[in-house]
Simulated scan of single mutants.
Amino acid sequence: MIEAVKIWNEPNNKSHWDPLLDPEWDLFAEMTRLAGQAIRAENPELTRVLGGMSPIDPFFLQRLEGKGALDHVDAVAVHGFPLDWNLWPIDAWPEKVAEIRAVTDKPVWVTEVGVSSFGSEEVQAWGVKKTADLLIGHAPRIHWYSLYDLPHTWEATTRHKEAEGSSYYRHFHMGLLREDGSPKPAVEAYAPYAEQMGLCQWFHFEDHRLDDAVAWFRRLGVRHVRTGLSWADRYREGALDWFDRQMEALAEFETTVTFCFTPEHRGIEPHHTSPPQAAEEFAEFCAEMTARYAPRRAAAAQGRIVSKELA
């Protein structure tokens, strides 16, 4: 069951939205307004979540509110990695959530939080428990990032690349599982919190890890999952077949789906972080995915009735 959709991912992070092309976030605000309207038209009951802020910045949220973007979302989200990239201590998590609550009346979700095992797998396991103790009860949704380490043959979704030094390589060690699927100590630390702290796992196009990931979600007792459907991937051959397989595999979980990534040929510049040439096209993608995977309940129920009658 899809319980929510997220409009973009980390819009105030240049690894996901190019600030040189949209320095005041006017284009992003327009895109968010149109996407929120399109999603609402397809399913008025579906929760729309603003792409998670990274860094956590109340002034950025106020900027978007001034442009009318928050009128078309139902919740806002934050991302934080204090032991790896953020310049604040892990104990500040409740304070960071409170900073956002102070400037909005919308629920504040924590849709990515994590600790890498780059320096120590034992530190990561400690970070799981510490994060759970700090955040459970302070946010309606919490998603640990992530289940799997990123394969070393892939590329991390960041504009900085190796110029980050060791910070870049931390991207590859965020999982509870190693690249080969073997468990780290963090798995045992996570298991007691699985019902209250969900998991975020991005699946690449035709990702070979999908079925094993679902098996781990079940084994751990995970209820809430966050993943993504890529607008850029929509233009690949066989895209809908892959999307169908992915969403069918996750159907038993309460899933938050993120819509993001600009197709190169539809961006102002040919990059996934570029604002689109026409914001309406992203809204159309959001509408299509919502209608396909999260139709309004009345329509879905009618479809089941018709199917039974035909059978």
Rank of each mutant, 00 (worst) to 15 (best):
V5R: 01
N9P: 00
K14A: 14
H16C: 14
L20H: 14
L21G: 07
W25Q: 09
A38S: 13
E45V: 02
V49W: 05
P55F: 07
I56G: 09
D57P: 11
D57F: 03
R63W: 05
R63T: 14
G66A: 07
H72L: 01
L83S: 13
L87T: 12
V97L: 15
S116G: 04
S117Y: 01
G119V: 04
G119C: 00
V123Q: 14
V128F: 01
K129Y: 00
T131N: 04
D133Y: 07
I142H: 05
I142E: 06
S146G: 11
S146K: 05
T158D: 12
K161A: 13
S166I: 13
D180M: 07
Y190E: 05
C200K: 05
D211A: 13
F217N: 01
T227M: 04
G228C: 11
L229C: 10
W231I: 06
A232I: 00
D233T: 12
F243E: 03
D244K: 06
T256Q: 12
F259G: 01
E264A: 15
R266S: 08
H272L: 12
P275W: 11
P275L: 12
P276K: 07
P276E: 10
P276S: 12
A283M: 12
A287E: 01
A291W: 01
A294V: 09
P295N: 09
A299R: 15
A299C: 00
S307D: 14
